[in-house]
Write a protein that binds this DNA or RNA. Sequence first.
DNA 1: AAACGGTACAACCGCGACTAG
DNA 2: CCTAGTCGCGGTTGTACCGTT
Length: 242
Amino acid sequence: MVTVREEIRKGPWTEQEDLQLVCTVRLFGERRWDFIAKVSGLNRTGKSCRLRWVNYLHPGLKRGRMSPHEERLILELHARWGNRWSRIARRLPGRTDNEIKNYWRTHMRKKAQERKSNMSPSSSSSSLTYQSCHPETPSMIIGIEEQELHGGSGCITSIMKSTPVDMDGYPMDQIWMEIEAPNVLPGPCFDEAKDSASNSLSGPLLPYPMWDYYCPETCLRMDDEIKVAPQFGYGKGVGPCY
DNA sequence: AAACGGTACAACCGCGACTAG
DNA sequence: CCTAGTCGCGGTTGTACCGTT
């Protein structure tokens, strides 16, 4: 028996793969990653596709260095929640948990170690508390929470309005531009995919699906867990509502 | 100019939670 | 209730880039 087993691709994504993934996600929404992986013609796992989308291709992602405000926020939230990166990321629109995690590792660990070497080795705790880094601004979190609880329109909407954010020279710009052009649907099965998509999707395809509804509703309660309103079509079996 | 070390970022892995059948 | 499939999260690793020596 000869099983022609196609190797699942791993490693860095090519521009072409990105393009294929973006198109497929636009057609089917950010769900059913295994399905998306198959339909897209990419030889990737659904998991890999999801990761690529969430961390890199998602429209509205900020890139570049953390602003001082973001830095402070990360410090505060990490002091409060520990390594709950995804949770922290929800407070930082446009930033991914991966990004924050990496940032923490490179910056804060170093700072923590510096501190450790400077101070007495009595404190064995590995978690660097916010107080130890920034004794000032103790009430920022509360302020943020209130802001988000009561409409949450502050910084988030400003980011939304400025999407795609300033990613100077970032290739995603090009990708999105190419996607905007009508004739560039790559990959083997997009016609097919389109057909089946048109059955399940109502209305025209919108350019930036999820960021159109990203705020303010989804941020109404970010205290503990986001309560995704059913009207967003995130329920099972219901296709994306854009 | 080359070697080296540090930093930033992308991606994978393993595991637990959730959900549909 | 059980199971398989799927998703999301946190930890870890790999690597490209950049500054310094």
